[in-house]
Measured scan of single mutants.
Amino acid sequence: THFTSQQLQELEATFQRNHYPDMSTREEIAVWTNLTEARVRVWFKNRRAKWR
């Protein structure tokens, strides 16, 4: 999946605040970024792996 810079900005900003967002937070992010909750969940999983 290719993310727009706007989507990445929103995802990264949320990641800085919370590395493990809950389901409702992921659903909110999905609405803001026009992505599915599953895409958001996978992005956070991959981002945490990169962060370690």
Rank of each mutant, 00 (worst) to 15 (best):
H2V: 11
E37V: 06
H19T: 02
R26L: 08
Y20K: 04
T36M: 03
V40Q: 00
T25R: 09
A38Y: 13
T4G: 03
K50C: 09
R41S: 08
L11D: 02
I29G: 01
T25W: 06
L8D: 05
T14L: 15
R47G: 02
T14F: 15
F15K: 01
R39K: 15
N34E: 07
N46Q: 13
Q7W: 05
R17T: 10
I29F: 03
R48A: 05
W51Y: 09
I29K: 01
E37L: 05
F15M: 00
R47T: 03
H19I: 05
E12I: 04
F15C: 04
W51C: 13
Q7P: 01
D22S: 09
Q16E: 10
T25P: 01
R17G: 07
A13T: 09
A30F: 04
R41C: 07
N18H: 06
D22P: 07
R17N: 09
F44Q: 00
F3I: 10
A38M: 13
R39H: 11
L11M: 05
I29A: 01
A13L: 09
N34Y: 05
E12K: 03
N46T: 09
H19W: 05
V40E: 00
E28I: 13
R47Y: 02
K50T: 09
W51S: 06
T4N: 08
V40P: 00
N34F: 07
R41K: 08
A30S: 05
E10Q: 15
W32N: 15
W43K: 02
L35M: 10
Y20Q: 03
T33L: 15
I29H: 01
T25L: 11
R47Q: 04
T1Y: 13
T36I: 04
T14M: 15
A13N: 09
E12F: 05
L11A: 01
N46Y: 14
E10L: 15
R47M: 05
V40L: 04
T36G: 04
K45S: 08
E27A: 14
T25F: 07
K50S: 08
Q9E: 12
Q16W: 11
T33Q: 07
R41Y: 06
T4E: 04
Q6Y: 14
T14R: 14
F3S: 03
N46I: 12
R48C: 00
E27V: 13
R26K: 04
F44H: 00
F3M: 09
F15G: 04
H2F: 12
F3T: 03
L8P: 00
H19N: 05
W51M: 08
D22H: 05
R52D: 09
E12D: 03
K45P: 00
K45M: 10
W43T: 00
D22C: 04
R26W: 05
E12V: 03
N18E: 06
R52C: 08
I29M: 03
S24F: 10
V31W: 08
E28C: 10
A38D: 10
M23H: 13
F44W: 02
T33P: 01
N46W: 15
M23S: 08
W51T: 06
W43F: 02
Q9C: 10
D22V: 04
S24D: 09
Q16N: 08
T1W: 13
S5G: 08
E12W: 05
L8M: 07
H2T: 10
E27S: 11
R48E: 03
S24K: 14
R47D: 01
K50P: 04
H2M: 12
V42P: 00
A30P: 01
T33C: 10
Y20W: 12
Q7D: 03
E10P: 02
A13Q: 09
T1H: 12
N18W: 07
R17A: 09
N18R: 02
Q7N: 03
A13F: 10
L35Y: 01
Y20A: 03
A13D: 09
N46G: 07
R48V: 07
R52V: 10
I29R: 00
S5W: 14
E10C: 13
W32K: 15
Q9D: 11
K45F: 08
N46S: 08
Q7E: 04
V42F: 10
W43G: 00
N18P: 00
F44T: 00
L35C: 07
R17I: 12
P21F: 03
L35D: 02
A49Q: 09
F3R: 02
W32T: 14
W32H: 14
E37N: 04
M23D: 05
L11T: 00
P21S: 02
F3E: 03
F44V: 00
R48G: 02
K50M: 10
V42A: 14
E10S: 13
R47A: 05
Q6D: 11
R39C: 09
Q16L: 11
E28W: 12
E12N: 06
R17E: 07
M23Q: 12
T1A: 12
E27G: 06
F44I: 01
N18C: 11
K50A: 14
V31C: 13
R26G: 02
F3P: 05
W43Y: 02
H2R: 14
W32M: 15
V31M: 12
E12G: 01
T36D: 08
T4Q: 03
S24I: 11
P21Q: 02
R41T: 06
H2N: 10
E28A: 14
A49T: 07
A13E: 11
T1E: 12
D22W: 04
M23Y: 13
F3G: 00
R47N: 01
H19F: 05
M23A: 09
D22M: 04
N18D: 07
M23T: 09
E37T: 04
E10N: 09
R41E: 07
A30H: 02
N34A: 07
R41V: 04
N18Y: 06
T4A: 03
R52Q: 14
R48K: 03
M23L: 12
P21K: 01
V31S: 14
R52I: 11
L8R: 09
V42W: 14
T33G: 05
R39P: 01
K45A: 10
N34S: 10
Q6K: 13
L8G: 02
R48L: 07
T14H: 15
T33A: 07
Q7T: 06
T25K: 08
V42I: 14
L11C: 04
Y20D: 03
V31D: 08
T36F: 03
M23R: 15
R41G: 05
Q6L: 10
E28M: 13
L35W: 06
R52P: 06
N46D: 10
S5Y: 13
A13H: 09
E10G: 08
M23C: 07
R26C: 05
S24G: 07
V40C: 04
Q9N: 11
H19G: 03
H2Y: 13
T33W: 07
E37W: 04
W32Y: 14
W43Q: 00
W32D: 08
L35G: 04
H19S: 05
F44G: 00
N46C: 12
L11F: 02
R52H: 13
R39L: 14
K50Q: 14
A30Y: 03
F44Y: 06
P21N: 01
S5H: 12
F44E: 00
A30T: 02
H19Y: 05
R26I: 13
T4Y: 05
P21C: 06
R41L: 07
T1V: 11
N18L: 07
R17S: 09
R39D: 13
W51F: 09
R41P: 00
H19M: 14
E27L: 15
E28G: 07
A13W: 11
A30D: 01
Q7H: 05
F44P: 00
Q16Y: 08
T14K: 08
T14E: 14
